[in-house]
Write a protein that binds this DNA or RNA. Structure first.
Lengths: 353, 353
DNA sequence: TATAAATATGCTCATTATGAGTATATTTAT
DNA sequence: ATAAATATACTCATAATGAGCATATTTATA
């Protein structure tokens, strides 16, 4: 038995990915690092590959060393602190990613990279530490997910026609039908409209249709490794890919899509947003944070009612002075709300556009 | 970098745990295997340890071999099929467990066992395969979680007094206050009552209070490994532990608690139960499955309304013949319900006892 | 200083969802 | 024929939700 175990170990490695989220100026941001070298397990030393699209933006990543760290979470805290100077508070496990070719270089004989993703919500934005950490607007990676200014034009101009074209040209008729339905569900052709939580489903469709930059990059790497000449990519496809947001390393954008969907799902029934705000805040500040994460506008009066009568916050008696019109009262989060069974959280409505 | 990676590998190993759930005769069951040998990574060859409580019941477990399996999920399917003869359908990742001393033998120098848990919902119960697979009523592991026949007496007779005693005797006053609140939230002293989803929180409290069999076992193993003589355990503690359900191997009962909580949470907003039922079913059958998982009774007429007017099921026109009174109509699941934004799922009420 | 613009807050009203119960229908067992 | 068991339909009170109007309190500016 022990031998069996040891033999397995040599071909996979456990890492940790951190999805660190903050909201400032109504923009939801995630922390990225620049150095892809840390991430790739590439055994190809000669860096002769010329990526067609820059992919140096990556999620913070660190190995998990069971000798040092009692739990996965502690391991995460440790190297995040080192790389970014951030002292994470509450973190939550997102998902464990272990598919083959998450790292395309695995084809060339590298070990399987299994990584456990963690979401952290933080207040502050100051960065230090060793890494080249940077905050990124997460809608730069998913431009079709922000509906606060109305339905993004990219959906009708680029996504829908191209995705439809892709679906209709699938050869196998059964598979075509399946993907027609996936398309319909993910992009809300159906009566019920857009579901803000289906971020991953939308991303996966776009990837499979070859419209996302990573899809082009991965196919090129695969060709390169298997010794074929790199396939020609039409300029138009590259154009589309560029309009569909910033490319990330490996499958990091997929991980990010998972995280965004998860956060949006939680908004509905847990008071997650309070980790993103200062100890006291106005209701507008709170609402703007929820709207930033949800990518949607909410009805102000009803939001107030939900959050106040729902017992999620309580007034402090103090007022905010810096604003333009009538000064708003400062509220604080009611910790007891967590223990009260009432669906404490803030709701996202169905799309209203 | 590569060297660094290789070095890490020698101290952790990735495995997969399957939580396979079925409901028959109004009893939610999980699949267990009997052979602990498969699970323990113990380097202690001389089996001189005499467990005070039998712990041969374990969740199916298998190693993950990246050479063979493209994804974690495929790896799971593969060995579950071999061990149990079950062909799993839809599975869902639960959580990744990687704390130190999940396997108490790790103290003796074994590698860290990191395992990814997957939940699978199945219809059938026939078993074959190589393992000693068996179905177990999952309330055998959590007798305080089944409220279908009213509030379980074990809560007031055993759990509350002992847990209260434990809390009140915590030395540090701040820690005592924290645990008082945890107790109050988990076991519903607060007005809002019992929250059916907080399965893990309840289990963890009972474990930390030393009331669960695993807690006693683990402390004995730790003492044994560190060379101390095994601490005496009062008969009363063992009695309590026995009344609090069947003991499982390693941290398997904790994993199971996580799964039960997850499933109950999903009941509220996703139509998960349909994987547990035949293609057509009566509304009573459907309701009984939901009740079995939720551990609570529901109002029949309202359940019907929820599920029919909510568009979750549709009538087939056929009727069931085998029942006692008026024959019920057979329904089928409406697949389209998934794509409709309306909170499709079945709700669990707050406790009504 | 008067007024407009901006923001916060309070309140109403229609619609829908939920919890609980009564009433009726259709079957099998005796 | 009648009782028991089950399914199904309907009612009603209360709570939650979505949308909007009205008023209050501030700053900016004519």
């Amino acid at each position: 038995m022990s031998n069996n175990v040891i033999e397995l170990e040599t071909s996979s490695v456990i890492g940790l990915n951190a999805i660190i989220i903050a909201v400032t100026d109504e923009v939801p941001r995630i922390l990225t690092v620049y150095d892809v070298g840390q991430l790739s397990l590439s055994p190809l030393s000669s860096g002769q590959m010329e990526p067609i699209i820059d992919d140096k933006v990556a999620l913070p990543f660190g190995p998990f060393d069971p000798k040092i760290h009692r739990t996965l979470e502690l391991g995460l805290h440790n190297w995040v602190e080192k790389q970014t100077g951030l002292d994470l508070g509450y973190v939550e496990q997102l998902y464990t990613f272990g598919d083959r070719h998450r790292d395309p270089y695995e084809r060339a004989g590298g070990p399987r990279l299994v990584s456990v993703g963690y979401i952290a919500l933080v207040r502050q934005v100051p960065l230090s530490g060793s890494g080249e950490a940077e905050w990124h607007n997460w809608y730069d990676f998913f431009p079709w997910e922000d509906w606060r200014e109305g339905r993004p034009i990219i959906i009708d101009n680029i996504i829908k026609p191209n995705l439809k074209h892709w679906v209709e040209h699938i050869v196998d008729s059964q598979e075509r039908e399946i993907n027609r339905e996936r398309f319909s569900i993910a992009f809300g052709i159906e009566p019920a409209g857009w579901d803000f939580e289906r971020v991953l489903e939308r991303y996966e469709l776009l990837y499979e249709a070859g419209m996302i930059g990573e899809a082009i990059r991965d196919s090129q790497i695969r060709a390169f490794i298997s010794g074929q000449s790199a396939p020609d990519v039409e300029d138009k496809r590259v154009e589309i890919a560029k309009s569909l947001g910033t490319i990330m390393a490996l499958d990091n954008r997929r991980i990010l899509a998972t995280a965004l969907g998860r956060i949006r799902g939680k908004l509905k029934y847990r008071p997650v947003v309070f980790d993103l705000l200062p100890a006291t805040f106005t209701l507008l500040q709170l609402q703007l944070v929820v709207e930033a994460l949800g990518g949607v506008r909410l009805h102000k009066q009803n939001f107030r009612r939900l959050v106040v009568t729902g017992g999620l916050v309580e007034a402090t008696g103090q007022r905010d002075s810096l604003s333009r019109g009538r000064p708003a009262e400062l509220f604080r989060f009611r910790r007891e709300a967590i223990s009260e069974r009432t669906a404490s959280g803030v709701g996202l409505p169905a799309a209203r556009f």
